[in-house]
Amino acid sequence: MTVPIGAYLALGALLFVLGIAGVLLRRSALIVFMSIELMLNAVNLTFVAFARQLGRLEGQVAVFFVLVVAAVEVVVGLAIIIAIFRTRATVDLDDVDLLRG
């Protein structure tokens, strides 16, 4: 083992923050969604790294469940995006502000 676990964790942190930047700075619903996937994967990497460090499989099982949830989320989320596009002809998140107080 020549690569320390800390390197994997740092990489995960970096990817996570990249995902956050995507969510905050991009207005296209699709790209925001991809950024969220990026964040999930960053967390997955962290899980796997910790599983390796501790020698326990629970971390990998957690990744499995994250995958399941991500799949469901993508399916539902994309359906919502399509529904929004169908009624408003846009995928710009800033145009969807019905909850404005």
Binding site: R26, R27, S28, A29, L30, I31, F33, M34, E37, N41, L67, A70, A71, V74, V75, L78, I81, I82, F85, T90, V91, D92, D95
Partner: peptide, 23 residues
Amino acid sequence: IYAGAIVILFLFVVMLLHARSGE
């Protein structure tokens, strides 16, 4: 799952929406 299913789904939706980013 990710590469094979989810990303394909993304691409599919992007195509469906004519790749308009909307920004």
